[in-house]
């Protein structure tokens, strides 16, 4: 029996590659990750939290505050939300999610809610006031023209 030898080799190779494919495609225990959206915001912002690969109900706390969040199971994830409470100081906070015996965290930054001061003003064109003055000029010219028309017509009459 010579034939089985290569067959056995092939079978082994197929089996091995199948095992590799399976083990990479379905990790035994994928790590939990936490994602927040948005990642920054002012007091009153609603923040959604997603614990990926957490296939059960989870809970979370915003460390250093008394905010706690329930994350009910949702498909293969757990998901919930909280609202940045009045009086929460600006700064960066850790949102720690506990999923069974695992935990993971993500950061949220409480800001004043305003934009960024990204300019000194040296190139500001102030287009708006240019528009204002040209508009005013046109109004004046039109009014003067109408007055002239009126005067000529009454002079002709």
């Amino acid at each position: 029996m010579r034939m089985p030898q290569p067959f056995r080799g092939m079978l082994a190779a197929i089996g091995l590659s199948a095992a590799i494919v399976l083990s990479t495609a379905v990790p035994a225990n994928a790590a939990i990750t936490v994602t927040l959206s948005p990642t920054a915001g002012a007091v009153g912002t609603r923040v959604d939290a997603l614990a990926s690969n957490c296939n059960q109900n989870a809970t979370a706390v915003v460390e250093g505050t008394d905010v706690s969040i329930a994350l009910p199971r949702n498909n293969n994830n757990a998901q919930g939300n909280f609202t940045v409470p009045q009086g929460m100081k600006t700064g960066t906070y850790t949102v720690l999610v506990t999923c069974g015996s695992d935990s993971a965290s993500a950061k949220f930054t409480v800001t004043s809610g305003s934009g960024a001061a990204t300019g000194g003003g040296s190139t500001a064109s102030d287009a708006s006031s240019a528009v204002l003055w040209s508009g005013a000029g046109i109004v004046l010219a039109a009014a003067a023209g109408m007055w002239l028309l009126k005067r000529r017509s009454s002079a002709a009459a």
């Binding site: 528009v131 204002l132 040209s134 508009g135 005013a136 000029g137 046109i138 109004v139 004046l140 010219a141 039109a142 009014a143 023209g145 109408m146």
Partner: peptide, 9 residues
């Protein structure tokens, strides 16, 4: 013109 100028203002 008058209306346009007023609009700009």
């Amino acid at each position: 013109l008058l209306a346009g100028g007023l609009g700009l203002v």
